[in-house]
Amino acid sequence: MKIRKWLRILHRDIGYLGVGLTVVFAVSGIAVNHINDWNPNYSIENSITKIDVVPNLDGEEMVKHVLNELKISEKPNGWHRTSPQRLQIFLEGITLDVNLKNGHIVQEKIEPRFMLRAFNILHLNEPKKAWTWFSDLYAVSLLFLAISGVFFLKGKKGWKWRGTWMVAIGVVIPYLFLLYYS
């Protein structure tokens, strides 16, 4: 009786503490599950513009010329010539890929997805270090929530009948997937 009471109290409070992280991991889990269909971290927009053929100038001068043609006053973070025909200009969050031969410019705009980028950083353990231990602790608390939840109720709705069957179904379903896909 006493153990059940404590299980309930711990289950409740650990559950409350885990709400934030559960939302983070669940939302990010869905987003990352579909990585083949979309980019879960960034929204990337490509647009094409055209200017007149870029005259053969020095690197810096060439960058100034392109930015003037595009009426961009922002100072670039840098630039790079990837080949005699290609010039890359890096602005904040934007890359201009200039074809010097024909004046075609591919403008790539990258923006981190609101909230999702942050969720994915945590879910995929990009920070490493202390976050690894903290998320391990969260995983252990999830184990506790799962196991303690099973022993909450006594009688037919608990471990004696309903609980056993429901847990069994929950184990068998992923096992069937495993059999089917292996």
């Binding site: 971290n41 690197g59 790079h80 990837t82 080949s83 990258i110 990009e126």
Partner: peptide, 27 residues
């Protein structure tokens, strides 16, 4: 990008060990 024009080097990491942020482009 390399120190000379048209040059560069590809840097590869084990998936997940290091994750380069896309915002690093141009930095």
């Amino acid at each position: 990008a390399g120190d000379k024009e048209y040059e560069s080097i590809l840097v590869k990491v084990e998936d997940g060990v290091i994750v380069f942020p896309v915002e690093a482009k141009g930095k």
